[in-house]
């Protein structure tokens, strides 16, 4: 199945942005990645099993593109991450600290953590999206949780 880009963008544009931003930590780059991701969808002739399958494809594409951006040269001032975070109207300081903590984790840990806690993906699907083994994903989630717990302490529940 295929769905119209406008319909997909309406539902998933912000999800794609958050996934991209979680990897590259630069809002301007993340917006470019959103554009690239939907462009790639338009150019591809992939047939999908379901809407969930399309969403996973979009997230995988955005995450891979974000990794490419990290490999490439970073032409923008790094301050844009801090400036963007300052501009986000978080509901409370705890939410801001949570996002900042996740984004401070090494990339290998913050992407599985994001997909597990925000996108609700089980380990198997995270492994598919990131092209990793399930054991690797479990290991990274375990270490990522430990790091979160060390930083957030009482604001992080031990939910393993």
């Amino acid at each position: 199945m295929r769905l119209p880009v406008r319909e997909l963008a309406e539902k998933y544009q912000e999800h794609v942005f958050r996934a991209a931003f979680s990897v590259c930590r630069n809002p301007a780059e993340a917006e470019d990645i959103v554009q690239d991701t939907f462009l790639k969808y338009m150019e591809s002739d992939c047939q999908f099993e379901s809407e969930e399958h399309i969403k996973a494809w979009l997230l995988r594409t955005a995450i891979n593109r974000s990794k490419d951006v990290l490999k490439a040269f970073w032409h923008r001032k790094r301050g844009s991450f801090e400036e963007y975070m300052e501009s986000v109207p978080f509901q409370d300081p705890e939410s801001r600290r949570l996002v900042e903590t996740v984004l401070s984790l090494p990339k290998a840990y913050r992407i599985p953590i994001y997909l597990f806690y925000y996108e609700d993906y089980p380990v198997k699907e995270i492994a598919d999206i990131l092209n990793l083994s399930e054991n690797t994903v479990k290991s990274r989630l375990y270490r990522g949780r430990k790091m979160m717990q060390d930083i957030l302490k009482e604001n992080w529940t031990d939910d393993e």
Binding site: E31, L39, V88, L98, V99
Partner: peptide, 21 residues
């Protein structure tokens, strides 16, 4: 997970961003 959803839902593309389809 609830905390994650509340926190990360605040991250958005900028008002100036328009997806070119």
């Amino acid at each position: 997970k609830d905390k994650f959803k509340r926190a990360f839902s605040e991250l958005h593309t900028s008002d100036a961003f328009v997806l070119d389809t």
